[in-house]
Design a protein around this nucleic acid. Sequence first.
DNA 1: CCTTGACTTGGAGTTAACTCTAAGTGTTAT
DNA 2: ATAACACTTAGAGTTAACTCCAAGTCAAGG
Lengths: 128, 128
Amino acid sequence: MKIAEVSERYGISPDTLRFYERIGLIPPVNRNGGGIRDYSEIDIRWIEFIKCMRSAGLPIEVLIEYVRLVQQGDQTIEARKEILKDQREQLAARIMEMQKTLNLLDYKIKVYENAILEKEKELLSGEA
Amino acid sequence: MKIAEVSERYGISPDTLRFYERIGLIPPVNRNGGGIRDYSEIDIRWIEFIKCMRSAGLPIEVLIEYVRLVQQGDQTIEARKEILKDQREQLAARIMEMQKTLNLLDYKIKVYENAILEKEKELLSGEA
DNA sequence: CCTTGACTTGGAGTTAACTCTAAGTGTTAT
DNA sequence: ATAACACTTAGAGTTAACTCCAAGTCAAGG
């Protein structure tokens, strides 16, 4: 699969895909004769994984380290697990933060809705 | 309350507090004789609100607009409510994204734990 | 053969949100 | 009263994560 198709399918610009590869956020992609990237199934799965992790805000630095470890083979399994566990905890904390903010937003929206209703009532009684 | 105390209490650097005020993310803070900021109860509540919103990733631009509207008084209530509703929806979507990533992380961690157990079993049978 | 258009690289530019610096003023403790 | 320190401003610098650009290669259609 060529870069344009991958870009289209996952909503990641070709520039960003090349950037990800350049910095080691995804492993090197094979090229055809003319040096043009030909993404394999495995490459695609890497992109899906990275897209998911990035969408949740995991830092690129950490993911680069993870990818590096995967490429080193089985003796890095323990280290990889630790990275994921660490990131999992941080992510869970962020989600809780955001849930708190969501609740506050919901509360404030309700307050505004009541305020608007009040104003409409006043308007009506003023008209009477 | 002086800037150092506010900074300490909310874990926001004095630089950032001044920056927030400069760009209109919090309303102007009163000064004492020598031009030094003296944060009121209301200022403090703004800071708590902004801290909460920022911790969930709401963009500064949007919050500046919200603060601007609040300062214009009651005729902006409808517009303010719309901003909050809009941000609420975006936040809910981000939380769902992140929850999906959290699930994937949990799954992957479990896979790693099994892989490690397998390796230990092999080691044991190799020793026997 | 020549143009069009997708691709390549290395490197510069952009954006959001701080974070720091310089130069100066005001306050406080000895 | 003078040294040390907190504060002021305007503006420059930093960081993460892209995003764009220039210059060049290559395959395919007219």
